[in-house]
Amino acid sequence: MSKKPTGTSPVSPSVPVELVNESLTFTLQELCLRCGMEHQQLQQLVEFGTITPLARPRSGNKDWHFSADTLQLLAKAARMQQAFELDAAGLAISLELLDELQRTRRQVQKLRQLLAQHVPL
């Protein structure tokens, strides 16, 4: 049985949306705030290459900027870290493999779909 909502807001008229593109970036500080992970953990994920700053700043780490996709990745990272008590290395490898798995699955789905139109499977 799923939890019943304790309150439901009425459907509002369409709210303004923003297509996320390269112009939306976040600093390391903002990422920490938004995904609830420690500064040091994120720094380790940078070292492992799980998340990559967009441009290397001239002065220190504080000016690192990350693409908006990083946020979504870190939301997943936070969920997984909580459930599996992973350290940074484990987290880095898991996220990388999950990403590769997702891309591969999509590729397989696409190729299967194409193939089925040419060769009955």
Partner: peptide, 8 residues
């Protein structure tokens, strides 16, 4: 709480 929105 569950929130419902109409999104364009």
């Amino acid at each position: 709480r569950r929130k419902t929105l109409k999104v364009k």
